[in-house]
Design a binder for these strands. Structure first.
Lengths: 162, 162
DNA sequence: GCACCACTACTCGGATAATAACTGTCCGAGTGTTGTTGG
DNA sequence: CCAACAACACTCGGACAGTTATTATCCGAGTAGTGGTGC
């Protein structure tokens, strides 16, 4: 069970979009080139973000994507769920219902104890992702990345932002 | 990204094995019949437990599986990792390395900031699973399941335990 | 010189194939039981 | 009656197909910019 690589791509793209000046858009082509990714497929990840309402889009020559909210209002969980879906990772098939000892009309109430525990772990994962905002990531990146590279990357993006 | 159903099966099977008297074994056939699962495939999940050293096996007519440790010494994480593998759910392909603005010989140090955050969430998930012991599950189940069903199931298992 | 208009080029979005992972099935190697035979 | 032995039946373990999800690709609908044209 691995998260799809789309999640990684979407997070990186959001980090870039967070640095975009107000009102400007960045195209899939530019994002794909910057990260060395297949343009056509990256597009699908961005579609996910768009459908979830996390980014706005515009068509035409200067079109592309931009964040729909401030980076402080966007959590990792928002982005991950937009791409990966909101369903739980553990699916309970209720196999306890197959117990041959069960009386005929017997009907268990409430979710299986095993499912409850697995779902709690799921929720812990989500809670962690919910606690990290996109603005936190940008702040961390600004410390990690050498000033020169940070600046030149910013200009590279600006040159291509419509 | 869903956990494989094998994880669910393994957890249920361990819950049953936890109630097995000392020194007795329960076969894949019995476990499969009890849960209404394909015997051949369930076998693969139990193989995972066996290879991880969580259960002991014996061959022959009265053979099968039994827990290798006390239920209080077995965590959910042990079982989940035995079936699902220990690798992280988020895989960092280090796409930041493709940044066209990077100097030629430049080499990033340390893992990507995005990967660090995703791995922390992973760890939160693992920590939750690590905190729940198999004995805890058995305790919960003994409260959830009606006494009659609990007892008849126990006898059903005992009849088939070698 | 300026406003209008048609065209172009570029964008996103959904529909369509290739690949990998999960699910399900089969058969062989090995072992404990059991029935038989001899003492 | 008891012990040794051989055949057997049942077990686990790894090797082999079928189905679903992920990855990758393509093409069409739509729009903002651009150049030309008429006033």
């Amino acid at each position: 069970m691995n998260l799809k690589s789309q999640v990684e791509w979407a997070l990186h793209c959001c980090a870039i979009l967070a640095g975009l000046p107000e009102g400007r858009y960045l195209s899939t082509k530019a994002l794909a080139e910057f990260h060395g990714l297949p343009k056509e497929y990256l597009s699908k990840a961005l579609q996910g973000l768009s459908q979830a309402g996390l980014v706005n889009t515009t068509l035409g020559p200067t079109g592309g994507y931009r964040l729909a909210r401030m980076p402080a209002e966007l959590t990792f969980l928002d982005i991950v769920e937009a791409v990966e879906g909101k369903s739980r990772t553990f699916i309970c098939n209720d196999i306890r219902a197959n117990n041959p000892c069960r009386p005929a009309g017997f009907c268990e109430e409430g979710p299986c104890a095993i499912a409850r525990i697995m779902w709690e772990a799921d929720e812990a994962w989500r809670e962690k992702l919910r606690s990290v905002k996109l603005s936190d990531l940008v702040e961390t990146l600004s410390k990690d990345i050498p000033r020169d590279l940070w600046k030149s990357s910013f200009e590279w993006v600006l040159d291509r932002a419509g």
